[in-house]
């Protein structure tokens, strides 16, 4: 009498196959996770970026930014903070206007912190054709100057200025990084598309104003 075939080898084989398959899947997941790792220390703690358009507030989690105006100018000057004889004071300030080697782009924005007070702003303009310009330090009034505090729920309006060759401009966006102290790690960052390109952009650049005043930043209605 022949004994019935033992079912165990077949079960063992299928068990082994599933172990091999599970190991292969785990290995693939491990390699995938490894590929997702950020190897550069600076990149690992770089500001976390949100993006949006100038026509709406852009939420960068630790703050929101809304671009309210974009102006082009051949020269810029700091608007005076004095309220007495303001016109004369501003006329004096306009005498000290700084002419652009190219064109000035003056971007006015409202920045509102979300939960913690922030004090510093770093802004960059991406031209849309691969070049990035940092904001100019020519204006003492620019957003993020000494004494500017971005308190939670209280919008602060001010401007950042960029000096650049107009032919570099294609479809500009401005990156706002707002943080406190010296530590930018894990801070918020917002890339705002200025929604200017083609003939509209050319018209705006060609029609650049002779001189634009950079106002002191001020808190706005909450």
């Amino acid at each position: 009498m022949r004994a019935a075939p033992d079912p165990r080898p077949a079960r063992r084989r299928s068990g082994r196959a599933s172990t091999v398959l599970a190991s292969a899947v785990l290995l693939a997941l491990l390699l995938g996770a490894q590929a997702l790792r950020i190897h550069d220390d600076e990149d690992r703690t770089a500001p976390i970026e949100a993006s949006g358009a100038a026509s709406e507030p852009v939420d960068a989690r630790s703050f929101t930014v809304e671009v309210v105006d974009v102006a082009f100018a051949r020269s810029v000057y700091d608007e005076s903070g004095f309220s007495f004889g303001g016109d004369e004071a501003d006329a004096g300030a306009a005498d000290g206007a700084v002419e652009a080697n190219g064109v000035w782009v003056v971007v006015t924005a409202d920045i509102t912190a979300a939960e913690r007070t922030l004090e510093r702003v770093e802004a960059e303009l991406e031209t849309g054709e691969g070049t990035t310009y940092g904001s100019s330090g020519v204006s003492m009034n620019a957003l993020g100057s000494i004494g500017d505090a971005f308190s939670p729920g209280i919008p602060r309006r001010g401007a950042v200025v960029f000096e650049l060759p107009p032919e570099r401009l294609a479809s500009p966006s401005v990156r706002f990084n707002v943080f406190s102290g010296l530590d930018r790690r894990l801070s918020g960052s917002a890339l705002v598309d200025l929604e200017l390109s083609g003939s509209e952009l050319k018209k705006a650049v060609d029609g650049a104003e002779e001189a634009v005043a950079v106002p002191q930043s001020e808190i706005r209605k909450a």
Binding site: A114, E115, T117, P152
Partner: peptide
């Protein structure tokens, strides 16, 4: 809401 303000 956990929002924090510094003295003014």
């Amino acid at each position: 809401r956990g929002r924090v303000w510094r003295p003014d």
